[in-house]
Amino acid sequence: MSAPELMGYVGMATGIIGAITGISGAIMGYVSYRRSNSLKSLDLRIELRKAVNVAQSSFQQLAKLIEYANKSRQAVASAMGRYQSGMMEKWKQEVEADNNAIKTLFQNAPAADKSYDDLTPKVLESMLVEVHRLQVQIDELSKKYDAAVRADDEDRKHIRERLG
């Protein structure tokens, strides 16, 4: 076998090896791409489930907080002789409006027991953003009623000082 013939066979062998390596690299790249997309979906589903659970828990806590704040405000207003005042009527209207808002938010919130397995990453992302938006609204209402309870506690302190 002459040197030029040998070079042809070596060139052909390295070309075949290169083609096989390129094809296997493309296949492995595609498999890795699919795997990373499935992991991304899994991460988003887990994050969404966590956010939904937090929102559901926050809804329940907010409902209890509003009920407590309403009773507190009524007791303080009664003690101060302002139970039939315009301020209390406005308070009652706000409580009713906030309770209606919570019911609407709760009805629009994603279910905690749903699996979300059939959703694309894009849909999962948009649902996650929606749940975070709900959580922000819940947090705003919680801050409002926390502040009301703190104000009532201050008023109670002043009532005790006047009486005692």
Rank of each mutant, 00 (worst) to 15 (best):
G81P: 11
V129C: 06
S2G: 09
G8N: 10
V136W: 05
S32E: 09
S58A: 13
S115P: 00
I23V: 15
R150C: 05
Q61D: 13
G22T: 08
S41Y: 01
A63S: 09
A109F: 01
Y9T: 05
L65N: 07
N108Y: 05
I16L: 14
R49T: 08
K114V: 03
A13E: 05
K92G: 06
I20M: 13
G164T: 08
W91S: 11
I17A: 15
I27Y: 08
L62F: 01
A3L: 11
Q135P: 02
L105R: 01
V54A: 06
D146L: 07
S32Q: 14
S38G: 01
K92P: 00
A97C: 01
D98W: 00
G18C: 03
Y145I: 02
V123A: 06
R156G: 04
S38R: 15
S24Q: 14
I138Q: 12
M127S: 07
R73H: 14
E96M: 07
D146E: 13
Y145R: 01
K92T: 01
A112D: 04
H158A: 06
A77Q: 01
D155V: 01
I17W: 04
L141Y: 00
Q107A: 15
Q107W: 06
L39Y: 02
N99L: 14
L62G: 00
E89R: 14
D152M: 03
E154K: 11
Y83T: 01
D139R: 06
R133D: 12
K143W: 03
R82W: 02
V131Q: 07
S41N: 10
G11A: 15
T21S: 07
E130H: 13
G25S: 12
Y145G: 02
S38T: 07
Q60H: 07
S36Y: 08
E161D: 15
M28G: 08
A148E: 10
Q60K: 10
D118P: 00
V10I: 14
G164V: 06
V76C: 06
L44V: 09
Q93F: 02
P4L: 03
R133M: 08
S78K: 12
T104P: 04
M12C: 08
L42N: 13
A51F: 09
K40T: 09
K143M: 11
